[in-house]
Nucleic acid binder design. Structure first.
Lengths: 308, 308
DNA sequence: ACCGCTCCATAGGCGAGAGCTATCGAGTCG
DNA sequence: CGACTCGATAGCTCTCGCCTATGGAGCGGT
């Protein structure tokens, strides 16, 4: 049984006429006759009663017709479904990202991606690198933006570095003006506001302070990104955030760069090594990498270092 | 898109392994790989992510899988449905017959047919030749037993004569013994019981009486076959019925043959000329014709004359 | 580190079959 | 009775699905 045999069969059943059916399906009449005959032989029963000028379905033909129609319709549906997926008119990308990047990088990138491919559903999972890595491995995420180095490196994940971004200190416009540029050691003893456990920014800042030989003093700790910025704005202390987050946070905040070497983090894109991500995810990856390159040139970000 | 491509695709999706899938569908592994690739090219999207030892469906593959399964299942159903029809394990025959044959010939024939093909549904339409011919032409009957000549002959119907049967006179065992053999003219003035309008037996008998120069006298007229036999048994008059009906009517009835040339009717099988009857109908036709031949030799029926 | 094993992809050849054109033969109509 | 219609048949070409043989990449054992 072949798809075109079923198509020819349906055409004859509709036209009640071999020659006209052959025209409808764009084959010669003998080819169509032959295929119908082959189908009849395979099924072991005549499908049409061929009386001159009065082609009729036999009972076997009547039984076959609805099934043939359904099979052809299903095949058509299959073609369209898959082609729509392939042409990004439909689909889904599940992207994981840490809160700092959800606030900083993602809005523009997702906006650009959505404008180009409005049929693709975007699911963003906001979480710490640890959670994101687990979900990637489990297959519940297609892609994740992560901060390197990964908390649990694994050969099952492939990471591509996107860019490095400097961290800056933010403070309330009403607070005492910190020295410019600020060294890490200048943070010693100053009141600070810190993210909850799980933020890689927390670990990064804490490690830097300890490397400088002091334990930072937190007036408030534990909020999410927006809350921390709010606390800073309210004068509760200094905050350490990525450049892009500080830039987006708007007024009421003073941004102070750190003295060299400063603090820097590497942002990368991670996906499973064993399966190729869906087409839509690969395109999102392209958009992300292009945006990263743009940011490197226009916003003073640093290009990504060697791949780890 | 080909059926075997879908089958191979499903096999790989199930086995998650090209080589084992190839064994499952009994083709070489390269053939299977090639067909999968052809399918992927046609659909414009990869269906599997081929990582060593970890073959996985892509999103396109996931979309295709349920449809592929359904298409294959439908194709299988189609094959079985048609083959069951062809092998007479299922099906239907719609047979029309006049009441006299429903009473006489049909019970044994239908019993024999049903024993041979228990899956075939038998629908019997009891009616006068006129109605039966109309229903045949309309397509609501597959076959009909009719008495020739047809009331409305038409080239759209093909008739095959089965046999000729003699008519006999039945009377109550309590009534006056009619002369043996009886001539048609002996019926003049004798009380008779007659069928309702529409029975070809009525027309046949009336015509014979008129040809013999008299108008018959009916004490009761208008009943169906069983009723008429009951009236005869009750002594209301003589009846004229086919030999086989008289034979089946059981006791309480005296059967008197008619003197030569007597009365005779030709029973034929009719079907539409333009469409071949369903397979089951053709087989029933065979059984009927065989039974007719048997009746000709064993029950003293006469063979059918030349085909009209 | 290397060898061997597994497993999918590629190459080349063969045969089936689906397509074509040309023609036949049966039934229909003017 | 001849022209016409329409499905079946014949003979051919060429695509394509199948095969065997082989390539090449990753993984495991010694």
């Amino acid at each position: 049984m072949q798809f075109q045999q079923l198509a020819y069969f349906v055409a004859v059943a509709d036209a009640r006429h071999f020659t006209r059916a052959a025209e409808a399906v764009h084959v010669s009449q003998p080819s169509l006759s032959q295929q119908i005959r082959t189908l009849e032989n395979e099924l072991g029963a005549p499908l049409f009663s061929r009386a001159r000028g009065n082609i009729t379905l036999t009972d076997a033909g009547e039984a076959l017709l609805p099934l043939a129609r359904r099979i052809l319709a299903d095949a058509d549906t299959a073609r369209h479904e898959v082609m729509e997926l392939a042409q990004l008119r439909r689909g889904r990308v599940r992207l994981g990202a840490p809160p700092s990047l959800c606030t900083g990088l993602l809005p523009d990138v997702l906006r650009e991606f959505h404008d180009r491919h409005p049929g693709i559903q975007l699911l963003v999972e906001e979480g710490g690198s640890h959670d994101l890595v687990r979900e990637l491995a489990r297959g519940s995420l297609d892609l994740a933006l992560v901060v390197l180095p990964l908390p649990t490196p694994s050969p099952a994940l492939t990471t591509v570095e996107l860019f490095q971004e400097d961290l800056v200190v933010v403070s309330s416009v009403d607070a005492e003006v910190p020295p410019t540029p600020l060294r890490i050691s200048d943070l010693a003893g100053r009141p600070m506001v810190m993210f909850r456990h799980g933020y890689d920014l927390r670990d990064l800042t804490l490690a830097a302070c300890r490397a400088a030989g002091f334990e930072p003093y937190f007036t408030v700790e534990g909020g999410e990104m927006d809350a921390v910025l709010g606390f800073v704005r309210a004068g509760l202390g200094l905050g350490v955030v990525p450049t892009m987050v500080a830039a987006r946070a708007g007024g009421e905040l003073r941004v102070t760069p750190l003295a060299r070497p400063g603090l820097r983090r590497t942002v990368a894109l991670a996906h499973r090594s064993d399966v190729a991500p869906p087409r839509a995810a690969r395109v999102l990856q392209d958009v992300l990498m292009t945006a990263a390159r743009r940011a490197v040139t226009s916003d003073g970000f640093r290009p990504a270092g060697p791949v780890t």
